[in-house]
């Protein structure tokens, strides 16, 4: 008879939040979870990050909003969402029934002060496990700078939101910068609990017959396996500069790509575009991580984080 297999510890801490396992689903790729309940037991997820909520309802960008590119896809949804109050009244109660932590992604349109208003309101709601600041959506303002493209703006925003809530705060950062570590350091020093790396890369795709962009807003955000090497490098760079946890994402599509992010320095990972291809992929990744740890005789996922061997 075979001996009982070692049960590796999968739980991780992100700020005050304790997750039963380190696999979450990325904002914007899982709706408000209801679309996925037919495919997997959603309770298995470490956490669910909601589609981004804004203070007022937002209709989003004109279609076409998506297209496929080599090993990836472009999207320019433009944060279509029903607004904070409808989210709290209609979406959140259903999400809370799942029984896994709900991380609410928030954003502001013109006035960054809306981040503070949103956080203050969400702070009072028990069913909100944490707040993710989406300061990196590439599909809103095409000419002005994103908050996460400026260390000072990132610092000021995080500082202001920090005063508005005691809940775990996560900043989702943009890869569209010269040095992402500067931004991560600014967020950390302003009191953020964790950073999500990375949002989509600015990109475009052209139909040569019509000479038009395949996306109505011309430029869009690139996701999927195509961006994984970039995301991984950014996790590794940031890991060496900050002490707070990193949630790694960008092209995670199977167990081995998820594991790469832990080795590069991620404490947890988020599955994004892969949800569209296989709606139960998160379940498979959670099982696969457990198997990998057993096989490698590692008793806790935390020991894998940042375990990259640098001497070749």
């Amino acid at each position: 008879m075979r001996s009982l297999k070692m049960q590796p510890k999968l739980s991780v801490n992100i700020g005050k939040l304790k997750l039963k396992n380190p696999v979450m689903v990325a904002s914007g790729t899982f709706g408000y979870a209801e679309e996925f309940q037919d495919f997997m037991n959603l309770k298995e997820l470490g956490a669910i990050v909601t589609k981004t909520i804004t203070l007022k309802p937002k209709i989003g960008n004109a279609p076409g909003r998506t297209c496929e590119t080599p090993q990836g896809m472009l999207n320019s949804i433009g944060l279509e969402n029903p607004g904070l109050e409808v989210f709290i009244q209609e979406k959140l109660p259903r999400l809370n029934k799942i029984g896994t932590p709900i991380i609410v992604s928030i954003s502001a349109l013109d006035d960054p002060g809306e981040f503070v208003i949103l956080s203050r309101r969400l702070d009072k709601i028990k069913g909100v496990a944490a707040i993710e600041l989406n300061i990196s959506c590439p599909n809103l303002t095409h000419n002005s700078k994103l908050i996460s493209q400026d260390p000072k703006a990132t610092y000021n925003l995080v500082k202001a939101v920090r005063r508005a809530t005691k809940k775990t705060l996560i900043a989702k950062l943009s890869p569209n910068v010269t040095d992402i570590t500067e931004i991560a350091i600014a967020a950390e020093s302003a009191g953020i609990d964790a950073v999500s790396l990375i949002n989509t890369l600015n990109a475009m795709s052209i139909d040569i017959d019509t000479r038009k962009s395949r996306i109505a807003t011309v430029t869009a955000g690139l996701s999927g396996p195509a961006i994984r090497p970039v995301a991984l490098r950014m996790v590794w760079d940031v890991y060496q500069k900050i002490k707070i946890p990193i949630i790694g994402m960008g092209g995670i599509i199977d167990v081995s790509s998820a594991l790469e992010f832990f080795i590069a320095g991620a404490t947890a990972v988020a599955v994004g575009t892969a949800n569209f291809i296989n709606p139960k992929i998160s379940h498979e990744i959670i099982m696969g991580i457990k198997k990998y740890l057993q096989k490698s005789n590692i008793n806790s996922i935390n020991k894998l984080t940042g375990s990259l061997k640098c001497n070749q």
């Binding site: 679309e35 996925f36 989003g60 998506t66 896809m73 569209f276």
Partner: peptide
């Protein structure tokens, strides 16, 4: 017909403009 990403209503990528909004 529209390009679909998720196909199950989650990504909001395939919207069409109607009298009641997207």
């Amino acid at each position: 017909e529209e390009h679909l990403a998720c196909g199950i209503g989650a990504c909001l990528g395939c919207v069409v403009n109607t009298k009641e909004g997207f």
